[in-house]
Design a protein around this nucleic acid. Structure first.
Lengths: 139, 139
DNA sequence: CTAAACCTTCCCGTCATGGGAAGGTCAATG
DNA sequence: CATTGACCTTCCCATGACGGGAAGGTTTAG
């Protein structure tokens, strides 16, 4: 199966497949006489695995580890679980950061008239105006 | 004020200041006779503005627009508010994606024994096992 | 005067991905 | 059988927002 079919069959773009090969995430596939890549069913399964793992936000490096655990029949599930939990923690941290940004901006937005006038608490905040806009107790 | 002091005064690294200049986010500062950058108070205010905007997740391109709005005394606050709302929407979308990832992984993790045994619903899921692990109604 | 601590520019690496050029191969159609 | 279009190959470049570090000039403290 050439790279185009493999791409269709797995949802991983041809570009990505070549990239994954180049960084050692997948083993180089077989080649035909004319030097076309030739993917086996097993290769396709690896690609599907990678695609799913990417969709869960794992980095290529993490997936590399996950792939070897997958291939190791004697892996302790402990290791996999630890990776998953670490990744969840990373995600949660990033989510929290972004939540803080969004919340701060929502606050500022709420206080901005959003009309033709130039007065704008959002810009005031960015400019470091001490009189920022958080409807809270301003003593 | 040279770039080191400016960096200390604004919390923007010297590298970043040069970068912002190179991409046209800030105007090139004055230079001393010996070609050192020489920042004015106004430059520092711009840098602080940028720092705050970056901390709210705005891209350099968006900040470029925000800076011109800030400098324009006749800006309609409508434009600023629109940018803020768009950015909040972007953040929310990304947060939602990451939440979905984290939730899915938490589900899988919960079902993984995490011990010495090799059986692992996380790997099964990545491998596309139809018998995935979502404690739900499996008919 | 010298050495440390600055500054300058320039180039490379990150991470996962897309774009595109130049050139070889395969399949279907005239 | 030849052509054409749709593939494939490798190689290089770009993204965004930085950081690292080299080579060389400047300032400042001792």
């Amino acid at each position: 199966m050439n790279i185009g079919k493999a791409s269709l069959a797995t949802g991983v773009s041809a570009k990505m497949i070549r990239y994954y090969e180049s960084v050692g995430l997948i083993r180089p596939s077989e080649r035909t006489e004319s030097n076309y890549r030739d993917f086996s069913e097993r290769d396709l399964n690896d690609l599907r695995f990678i695609r799913r793992a990417r969709s869960l936000g794992f980095s290529v490096e993490e997936i590399s580890r996950l792939l070897s655990l997958w291939r190791d029949r004697n892996r302790p599930s402990r290791e996999v679980k630890a990776m998953a939990e670490k990744h969840v923690a990373d995600l949660d941290a990033r989510i929290k950061e972004m939540q803080a940004m969004a919340d701060a901006l929502r606050d500022l937005s709420r206080c901005c008239a959003g009309d033709d006038r130039p007065d704008c608490p959002i810009l005031s905040d960015l400019a470091g105006s001490p009189a920022a806009a958080s409807q809270g107790v301003t003593p």
